[in-house]
Structure formats: structure tokens, C-alpha cells
Computed example of a mutant assay.
Amino acid sequence: MTSAETDGQANDKTAARAARRERKRDQSREEILDAARRVLLRHGVGAMTLDAVANEVGMSKTGLYYYFPSKDALVFELVHGVIEAQAKAVQAGVGAAVDGGGALRAIIGGTVESFAPRLDDFRLAFLFGQVAGAGALRWDREQFERIRPLNDLVLGKATEMLGAERAERLPRAAVEPRLMAFLAYLAAIGLLTMKGMVEPMDDPLLYSDEQLVEGFARVFEAAAAAGEGG
């Protein structure tokens, strides 16, 4: 075996060991996030401490610090994961839309479909900061810069489609395209918030999720099409 072949095998083994370490690290990281979510949902915000999470996952607090330097960092990753999954699902739905109104429908429907079966994830992503109280969470600029691109996954394509249509006509609704897309998103968030409010009281809403999504979708499709043919 030549020296080059020996060096090549050594490099391959080194790369394989590095890959195994990375897979193990990713697996441990996901196990910690799952444990944190269980602690949070089982015991509430006050019990969401690094000690509690370390006990849940079965490692020392020092070991936990290797993956997450603070409670804020851990909660951020939980929130980011939930929002990222929802944003990608909405992005796929909007990508299949044929016009701006359809894109708005996809934002509303995709958001509700993502969270309605998992309201705990919705509360974690959108209500945790309110429940935790002022100053309970502090995210830095780098973390906010990771969150903001997710807004573009949800709103970007719809804004582009609405903008192109607006250039062809002046809508009577006269709402800026990005704002209209965001308002559609807020409609879905409001629906989920109301659903989350009444669910624990066993007092369901008068209308089904499907009816509410359809109602919002028709309103926004009409707004997007306003002025067509004028």
C-alpha cells in the first residue's frame, strides 16, 4: 500500500469519526429539546429550569451547558423549531397557489392546519413570552436574525404575487401587498388563539376550523381581487 493510500484511509477514518460525533451530538441535542418541551408542557413556565431539563433527559447540568449555554438559548431553539416547521409547510402551500388570493388562502389554511392539532406548539411559539412575563426571556440580535427569515418563508411569495397583480390594476382595497399577506397570517393566528382559549373550557367555537378558514380565505381573496376588471 502506498503512502498516499495510507493517508487516504486515515483521512476517511477521521472523517467517519467526525461524522459519528456530529450525529451523536445532533441526537443528544434533539433529546434535550424533547425533554425541555415535556417539562414545559407538564409543569409550566416556572418549572422550566435547566436543572429540571437535565433531570428529565438524564444528564448533568454541566453536560446540558455543552449544548445550550442558557435557558433562553434552549427556549429559543424550541420556538425556532416550531416556527420553522410551520413556515416551511405554509411556503409549500403558497408555492402551489395560482394567484395572490390563493396565496392568502394558503397562508391562512396552512397556518391553521399546522397548529390546530398541536395547540401546545402554537402556545409555545406565539404565547410563551406573554405567559413567562416581562423580562423572562431575552434573545440577542443573532437569534432575531435567525427568526426573521422565517417570516419571508410565510409571506414572501404571497407578497410577490400580490405585488405583480397590483402593478396591473389598482385594487380598491388599497392595502400594500406585504401588509395584506401579514394580515392574512394574523387572521390565522387569531383563529388559533381563540381556539386555544375555549378548548380547555370544553366550549367549542360555533364554527368549525374549516368554516373559519374558508370564511377568512374568501374575505382575503375578495380583497386581493378588488378592482379586477375596473
Results as ranks from 00 to 15, higher is better:
L183S: 07
G46H: 06
M1Y: 11
L124A: 09
Q143R: 11
G163I: 00
Q91E: 08
V39S: 11
A87V: 06
R118N: 15
R218S: 12
G133F: 04
V90M: 07
P177R: 00
R166V: 04
R218K: 10
D34A: 14
A103K: 00
L50N: 08
D209P: 00
V82T: 15
L40S: 04
L33G: 14
A35C: 06
L150G: 12
R178E: 00
G46W: 04
M48A: 12
G227T: 00
G100Y: 00
D12Y: 01
R169D: 02
R148Q: 11
A10I: 14
Y185I: 04
R141L: 15
A132R: 10
V53Y: 03
A225P: 04
K88D: 14
L191C: 08
L162Q: 07
V131L: 15
G110M: 06
G46I: 04
R148I: 05
E228R: 13
M48P: 12
Q143M: 09
G156S: 11
G101W: 01
A4S: 08
A225Y: 03
D209Y: 10
E214F: 04
Y185Q: 08
E142V: 14
F220R: 02
G190K: 02
V94N: 02
D34N: 07
V90L: 02
R218V: 11
A36P: 03
I108H: 02
F76K: 06
L64C: 07
R218C: 09
D152T: 10
T14I: 13
K195S: 11
R178F: 05
V131F: 14
H43F: 09
A96Q: 11
Q27K: 11
I83H: 11
A174T: 01
L137I: 05
G58W: 03
R37G: 12
R166M: 13
D51F: 10
D202P: 12
A125P: 01
S60Y: 01
K13M: 15
G81D: 01
Q86W: 13
R166A: 15
E145H: 06
T111S: 06
L40F: 09
G229M: 00
N55C: 14
W139L: 12
F115L: 05
L78P: 05
T193G: 12
A87R: 05
R38A: 15
A47L: 10
R25Q: 08
G135D: 01
L205V: 03
F115R: 08
S208V: 02
D99Y: 00
A174Y: 03
A35L: 08
R166W: 07
D140G: 03
I189R: 12
K24S: 14
I189M: 15
Q211L: 09
A87Q: 01
G230P: 09
A103G: 07
R105F: 02
D120R: 12
I147M: 15
L127C: 13
D99F: 04
L153W: 07
L183R: 05
V39Q: 09
T14W: 13
G133W: 05
L186D: 13
P149L: 06
F182I: 09
I108G: 02
S70L: 10
L41V: 15
L150W: 04
F128W: 10
